[in-house]
Design a protein around this nucleic acid. Sequence first.
DNA 1: CCTGCTATTGACAACGCTGAACGAAGGCTC
DNA 2: GAGCCTTCGTTCAGCGTTGTCAATAGCAGG
Lengths: 337, 337
Amino acid sequence: MRRPTLDDVAALAGVSAKTVSNVLLERPHVAEATRDRVLSAVKTVGYRVNHAGRGLASGRSGRIAVVVPNLHQPYFAETAERLILELSARGFTSTLRIAPDEAAERDAILGRTTTDADAVIICPHFFVASFFGSSPPERPIVQLGGAPNGVVDTVVMGEREGFEAVTRHLLDTGRRRLALVWNSTSSGKPEGERYVGFTAAHAAHGLEPDPALMVSGSDWDRRASGYEAMTGLIRTGVDFDGVVAVNDAIAVGALRALVSHGIRVPEDVALTGFDDTDEAGFTVPPLTSVSPEREDMVSNAVDMLVERLDGLAAPARVRRTGAHLVPRASSAAPAPA
Amino acid sequence: MRRPTLDDVAALAGVSAKTVSNVLLERPHVAEATRDRVLSAVKTVGYRVNHAGRGLASGRSGRIAVVVPNLHQPYFAETAERLILELSARGFTSTLRIAPDEAAERDAILGRTTTDADAVIICPHFFVASFFGSSPPERPIVQLGGAPNGVVDTVVMGEREGFEAVTRHLLDTGRRRLALVWNSTSSGKPEGERYVGFTAAHAAHGLEPDPALMVSGSDWDRRASGYEAMTGLIRTGVDFDGVVAVNDAIAVGALRALVSHGIRVPEDVALTGFDDTDEAGFTVPPLTSVSPEREDMVSNAVDMLVERLDGLAAPARVRRTGAHLVPRASSAAPAPA
DNA sequence: CCTGCTATTGACAACGCTGAACGAAGGCTC
DNA sequence: GAGCCTTCGTTCAGCGTTGTCAATAGCAGG
């Protein structure tokens, strides 16, 4: 009835509890025969390790906190899913923390709400180096996406080249006046890697982005935000033939706004997103997007984390992963006039 | 440098470690003055509880496993999000387990992969009573959605009435030949609460569902599955003026299939989903759906779980939550001929 | 045959916390 | 004033595991 312990297994196998532990931890120097005997005893008594005991004795929990702003945004849900599966494949358990606002995110990073994890992987929304004050983080933290901050290891996804590719794609197919639907930033101006890519593509065509075509919604993560921003732009009456959205969710919101104002996609206006979420393939019309190399991002993040857990002491590292254009109908070239 | 322990706090506050523990656990019979002294000592030394130690001593982890088939399906992502936030608001930590197939789901339920949780909340895909063999579950399990199985507490969402409502909505607005796009079931035939609602609505109009209009994809959870099934139905050439999809994801897939065959929604065919996920409001046209009362579902599930953790021994209980129609443009009445 | 290695296993003491049980002090009732 | 209850705090013994280190055996080399 009582849940079996190491001692129960040890008694049955005729060895000490420590030996059973050594077998389970796959320590070297355990005789083949002993191992077999132990493992079969484990099976017969139905032993399962007690994580609390192990954690207390070893000083590690074997648990990684995965921190995302939310799960209703497909990008975060899909990323969290991959992270969790990858961590579990590598023998870690995980705990998913949802940090919808800056305070929650800081608390998660600083460990105030994630005391039971050995390390943290975060898809940051607000994260900046100043969260730490003067003292460095007390446990490994890896950032997935977001800008390198010199404090924690970071996986940079191909934001710049991805955005450049999608922007060039529109320019190459004859679009000339591209609107940019942005998430709001602290400065109120577009900024960061994606904007750099956007500008670079324009420059390659000898063009410059038109500030009158840049709009942002009130929130990064809501389709509603894209709808709202797009509607605002349409109301200004300004002319445009392409819309580059900062991510798929915003593109989906923008799409609704375009359609409900009688603007046809892609005939009148081309539309693109970013992230290549599941839903991008199923909008009407299907949405051109940019696919970050998710597998790469996730495995790089976990690699770096494991290295830190194994004791690596080195300045914050940056790994870059790629991104590629996924053209779909929403950006099909307009019929020649 | 060393992480502070109860003893450090106790020394500073001039009390025993046990008293500090009592304060932190909000035990009664601690004098106000003592509590204040302890709490301020906790702050000064920066104490944070060691979960391993607490877990070992108390025999509980304070952790609940949330088990879902995946996160790329918005319904599961949104539900998991609410569960995690609710659990955290009630002082539990959570661990999210992704169980994509039957074996993984069974392992999670039986605790083989969730040894570190006191209890389990599961959004089941396959779960049946036979998972347990003859012995009852060894810790509290609550099912969120899915059919009651007599073994674990279950929250039944308003599948029957929700489906009846949406079906009636279509019939009331003049649609007569309703296709049903189903997830595949083991029997290959539609079954369960949703189908009962579908049939009941027909009966109320003196009609009977036409078996020739029932199709299912290969998978519950992929938009692709809805696309595939819908395409199959269109190819048969059979006539229909409404499509009832078993959930939003399948409806989104069906929508793509309809549009790409030149069938207009809602002019030619009305379309409805189920779950009222975030994306339903942003398809083109916006998708009529049924909203389960998510808050209710989640709080009921956690309530039942907490009661079990508090020692309630009683036969498996069932709580029912409601569902209401959310009409949108995809099911607007056709213009009178 | 002794020395020094490696391979294998075990004894013991933590790890940080909480449950149980108990003691001291004060207040109430009759 | 005896008896009892309530409040508040302490002492003590583990919870189940792993790290450290010692013990033993076997074996190669001299």
